[in-house]
């Protein structure tokens, strides 16, 4: 090796291989006897979302627009991803469909309305995966209020079930309640940089 420049890659990998060279390694068997599936309980999802200060509305799909009309001020502006079902939006709000909206307009909106990919009942989590009814990650980040419409068949009981449904190559955002911090005396405070209000509309 003398006299030849060694790349950092070769150096790091060479050191790690040398570090492991000493011992004989029996392959490690990973015990996977933890729970993979649970009994789905929509009430548990509602309870756990509420516990982390999300607002949950359980309505029929036909009532989504009326529910949103109740949540948002009349005359308000909402950002929506391009694939959001138009029937979800009430006539009382102005919808800005994302065709490459700039950050200033997204941030100035009163709310964003999205669909969801998966939800986890045990942890009170909603996952977005950038599908057309969820849109770019920035849409659900800058507005101060996030309204997420979730179908019951998107809800699973456990984290392992959720991961099995998701596609790792998509940009994924796991959301469990509104933005929060515990950095001051470990007291949980809702609302730092992300949306300060999270509404989940759960439809059958």
């Amino acid at each position: 090796m003398v006299g030849r420049a060694v790349s950092a890659r070769d150096l790091v990998l060479g050191r790690l291989r040398a570090a492991l060279a000493g011992g004989a390694h029996t392959p490690v068997e990973v015990p996977r006897d933890y729970r993979h599936e649970g009994t789905l309980d929509l009430d548990q999802l509602v309870e756990r979302l509420t516990d982390y200060r999300a607002h949950v509305h359980r309505v029929a799909e036909a009532a989504v627009a009326d529910t949103i009309a109740d949540i948002l001020p009349a005359g308000g502006t909402v950002v929506v991803p391009p694939g959001l079902p138009p029937a979800w939006l009430p006539p009382t709000v102005t919808a800005l469909s994302d065709d490459g909206l700039d950050n200033a307009r997204i941030g100035a909106a009163d709310a964003v309305v999205t669909g969801a990919a998966v939800a986890v009942a045990e942890t009170g989590t909603v996952v977005l995966d950038g599908s057309p009814d969820q849109g770019r990650r920035v849409l659900s980040l800058l507005p101060d209020r996030h309204v997420c419409v979730l179908r019951a068949d998107q809800v699973v009981a456990t984290v392992p079930e959720a991961l099995a449904r998701l596609t790792p190559q998509r940009p994924l955002t796991w959301i469990s309640g509104p933005s929060a911090t515990s950095d001051i005396e470990l007291i949980r405070v809702e609302g730092v940089h992300g949306p300060r209000k999270l509404h989940v509309i759960l439809v059958p």
Binding site: R48, R137, L172, T173, W174, G177
Partner: peptide
Amino acid sequence: FLQLLPRASTGERMNPYTSMWTGVTPGDG
């Protein structure tokens, strides 16, 4: 790890946000 970390760390069932990304997504991020 998504079950172990939040419960051991902040004492939450799940932390408010987890982001996952793979390389570059055209038009997003």
